[in-house]
Amino acid sequence: MASNTSDLRSPLARARGLGSAKDGTEHWWGQRLSAMALVPLTIWFVFGVIRHLGADYTAFHAWMKSPFSAVMMILTAVVTFHHAHAGLQVVIEDYVHVEWQKLALLIAVKFLSFALAAACVLAVAKIFIGA
């Protein structure tokens, strides 16, 4: 690597792998990683929804009492909100150019994503525990 004369970074900077922004590609990578996770989770979710179309309260609870189903539903919700938040953030950053509006939207979307994710997790946990 020492022969790469076009790279002006120090060996330490190169080893850290972070650019001048200091947070590297975490956002990009997180979006891709959640996308990969959502492929099997989405397929599970669609099958699950089809099998519980028009299901009543008892049937739905029986489904969420299974540890596997409860874990999959929590993962689906959490990863979906992570991915949705990452995507909405990029859309807002690309199209909203008035600084205070951009900041307000980014904060609102982040708060809402966390709140809805927490509500989904608590709902599944409550049904699973049977409280």
């Binding site: 309260y57 539903m73 949705a84 809805l116 509500a119 608590l122 709902a123």
Partner: peptide
């Protein structure tokens, strides 16, 4: 995701 949340929370409520 708003509908997803409504669906799950409703199942936990009553």
């Amino acid at each position: 995701t708003l509908l997803l949340t409504w669906w799950l929370v409703a199942a936990a409520v009553s």
